[in-house]
Design a protein around this nucleic acid. Structure first.
Lengths: 380, 380
DNA sequence: TGCCTGATTTGAAACGATTCATTCCTTTTC
DNA sequence: GAAAAGGAATGAATCGTTTCAAATCAGGCA
């Protein structure tokens, strides 16, 4: 393995002359391949080989029934003996469709979005659409940039979970002629298609649950108020407080910069310093809750005894944490499927009216908000 | 709305079931919008408005310095007053580059891959590349299909974590002229670029660790032997067994169909039935380990007392589980960055020789494999 | 004034597919 | 046997850019 068969980057020693043609090519078939840039097969070569015209090849590809069986076979043979692969760019230029869908979401590392993407991908791949995936990391600037890239690519449609609370950017997309469906955001106010879950309701469920357990001072670890989901979830919590029987019920909001584990952990300082000190905390999403749990553990605060915790999204891992995390479940996969189907409908020009699909959230209670029975845990 | 114009699926008098979503039509600006498909602005309109030729507009776009400042300004003004957006398809057709990179991985829902994607995305977006993300779910058929789609789109390059253990498919890609870099797979044997971690070594670390703890019968919950990572990790474990001082050391492999949580949980039955019954189990990845933990908890088997567990990948959530999961850490983000940089180098035609970048794995020991101290946990 | 030079600008020819009005063949019909 | 009908195949025009040889322009210099 020490001989120079295949020089690795670190295999330095002597400077390789960078300009002149290198004399020793990589032994294996690699190397200066891209110089003699593999000439791609075009429809014309197929036509020549099959002794037909361009139009006929095109027909075999797009409209096989109008071609006589014998010729069709000849063309098909030529196609795979030349290894012809249709050039989407040329196709797109002519017909105006790219067979590509853009998906723009807040954070690809969040299992919530991952699950949504899975759902969307499953329906879109059936129709041979390609997905362009973009993760904005909650940055409006990045979102703009991605939208621009997607526009340039003339994607047939976009699924987007917008960064900003107003829907300006999404409306602009639609205005510029790109079918757009909102993901995890209601669009009915702006006449946009959407697949979403009722966030106000979800947050109410969570807060109600905590109040019912007897907590009075509860905290909400929330993301930036630019994000709609954060606004709505706060609103839900607020309503719950107002409805709470006990009038000493209070809600302390702790706003962090992003919906991530790290930010959740960082929020614990403020959480523990709050006056009066909350006995329960709900988080705008599970990642924040994960961070809060970690922070509380580090601070030696027992969950749920000293602090009950509820998350939001119910990502797969929520049930496996220590302690297992109570959370507001959203039908993630189904959300992705619904959004994709909606978009597909619009893209294919099927009879279609813009509409908002809304799912109901559901509270899942687990250990992080359940007072443990006084009896010892099953030790046997 | 009762006429048959547009039958929405659920739009009837029946009560809304809690599972199905609710649909609300959006009154505003719906309907036949897409019929009058927004005519896209072309370079020609810009040219007319700015009173210059096509070539000049193109120069402003691609080669601004050769255009006189005054004309340049005129053109730029025209560009944004017409809201011109360059058509990538046409561009690509002419210059042959699509500014798109395909990323093909095993499972988009696995945080391991998600983290890799993040890394890759961060470097690629700097260069304004778009990403086409494809999740094969470990199916070779799907992989083929995605490769085909990517070829048709003439992506400039592909990052791929191949499904099959041989590298045939990847080699074919390269042969067909698409720069390709392997992700989490070593490619030096085939002269391919790659960014990977030494899986044999990683598995050795895990197994050594278990043997050092005194375990003699250990199990390996492994994925299908078509996947290279699974082969290598088994090999690592095997070597460790052979090296183990104790000659009663044994390794029982339990093969499951996919590297998922569910499959891991399902493996527990076989795990507990194995003869001799293993006292420790290592898993081919963390998702499997998560499932195993879940299964063991359900079966009432205490971890680590009755069964030690070690995962592989060290995804973010591993440290937060109950009990926290020992795992073999891989530099995920860096893997993505390295692979993307390698690809970029090749794509941009920078002086480049195919090479394999290799990272070292690292064992992270946590509660799932650490005998608890006999003293009671801190109850105060 | 006339010629030369270098800086700008022009516009026609690609790129690779799809469309569609024509042309070319067979059959069928009378 | 001629005409009509209809099925197949053709190929030029087109999509929106980029490229590049050629045309144009503005000074500078003798």
């Amino acid at each position: 393995m020490t001989n120079g068969d295949l020089p690795t980057s670190l295999h330095d020693g002597t400077p390789v002359n960078r300009l002149g043609p290198v004399e020793r090519r990589n032994s294996s078939s690699s190397g200066a391949d891209h110089t003699s840039a593999k000439r791609r097969v075009t429809i014309r070569e197929v036509a020549n080989l099959a002794q037909v015209s361009l139009g006929t090849v095109s027909n075999v590809l797009n409209n096989p029934l109008v071609v006589a069986p014998a010729t069709r076979k000849r063309v098909l043979d030529a196609i795979d003996s030349t290894r012809f692969v249709r050039n989407t760019a040329a196709h797109q230029l002519r017909v105006g469709k790219s067979r590509t869908i853009g998906v723009v979401l807040l954070d690809i590392a969040n299992p919530f979005f991952t699950e949504i993407v899975r759902g969307a991908e499953h329906v879109l791949r059936e129709q041979d659409y390609a997905l362009m995936l973009c993760s904005t990391d909650e940055s409006a600037k990045r979102e703009r940039r991605y939208f621009r890239v997607l526009e340039e690519h003339r994607v047939d449609g976009i699924l987007v979970c917008p960064v900003d609370s107003d829907l300006e950017s999404a409306v602009a997309l639609v205005a510029s002629g790109i079918p757009t469906v909102l993901l995890d955001r209601d669009g009915s106010s702006h006449g946009l298609c959407s697949a979403a879950v009722d966030d106000i309701r979800g947050a109410e469920l969570a807060a109600d649950h905590l109040f019912e357990l007897g907590h009075q001072a509860i905290a909400l670890v929330n993301g930036p108020a630019t994000i709609r989901q954060c606004i709505d979830r706060k609103e839900g919590a607020r309503r719950s407080v107002q409805r709470a029987r006990c009038r000493s019920a209070s809600l302390k909001e702790i706003v962090v910069g992003a919906l991530t584990i790290d930010q959740g952990e960082a929020a614990v300082v403020a959480l523990l310093a709050a006056e009066p000190r909350p006995s329960a905390v709900m988080c705008a999403n599970d990642l924040l809750a994960f961070g809060v749990l970690r922070g509380l553990a580090a601070a030696g605060v027992a969950v749920p005894e000293e602090m009950a915790v509820v998350g939001y999204d119910d990502v797969v891992f929520a049930s496996m944490l220590s302690p297992s995390l109570s959370s507001v479940r959203q039908p993630k996969y189904e959300l992705g499927v619904a959004a994709a189907e909606l978009l597909l409908e619009e893209v294919t020009g099927a009879p279609h009216e813009h509409r908002a699909i809304r799912f109901e959230p559901e509270l899942v209670v687990r250990a992080s908000s359940t007072p443990r029975p006084v009896s010892a845990p099953p030790t046997n």
